[in-house]
Amino acid sequence: MIRTDWRDHDWQLIHTTPQSPTLHMALDDVLTHEVGAGRRAPTLRIWEWASPAVVIGRFQSLRNEVDAEAAQRHGIEVVRRVSGGGAMFIEPGNTITYSIYAPKSLVKDLSFQEAYAFLDEWVLEALAELGIKAWYQPLNDITSEGGKIAGAAQVHRGGAVLHHVTMAYDIDAAKMLDVLRIGREKLSDKGTTSAAKRVDPLRSQTGLPREAVIEHMIATFRRLHGLGDGTLRMDELTQAETLAQSKFGSREWTADVA
């Protein structure tokens, strides 16, 4: 396998109407597989969330991370994703999430640390154009002078690597701390009084609507790497809907690490 560059690939954009948290989990699984098998061109998918969620990492303990009663009270669904990393608190208008489904050749010979930074170089460029000085903070965070902006996670399947990132556009810190246990522990450890000190969202830093930030990110990717407008194939969507129900919506999967 020879190392490839962004421009060696015919990148496709998927940006659909809002979808459920479990369907997002399943689409990541299916599309990574499709790119790995060579049935789909390398793809950038921008997520639109239909409902709030806590997305925990593949190896996080459900009961250690999430206050189930608080999540239920706020109407927040708890789902587990296929990649490692930490819990994400998602509210539809507050979050910018994207996935990159790339052939492994794009990150060949890179260390994990280099691969994370490499796959998000375009985002740092987009943020710089919006006036935010941001950089990669190993292992898997994008941060700024004001605080953390985003967290990334990768997983490898067949011939593909999935790199997905959740960025804080805005944040309801009180609600987040109500639902995520780890947030509370980190606060008590550090003696700080506000989670907002750890996360500095894009809304306050750019003053732009969420949609404008997303449009700018897409334009930056298109300019740097090339990007055609693609769609989900019907068979991909059907497969993902099945998986969303049978696997990602199941108690067995979500509580796999109790």
Binding site: R58, F59, S61, S83, G84, G85, F112, H156
Partner: peptide, 15 residues
Amino acid sequence: VQLSGDFFLEPDGAL
């Protein structure tokens, strides 16, 4: 024994 955390481990069956 249950290992958990926000680390990265592949394949996930290694847990």
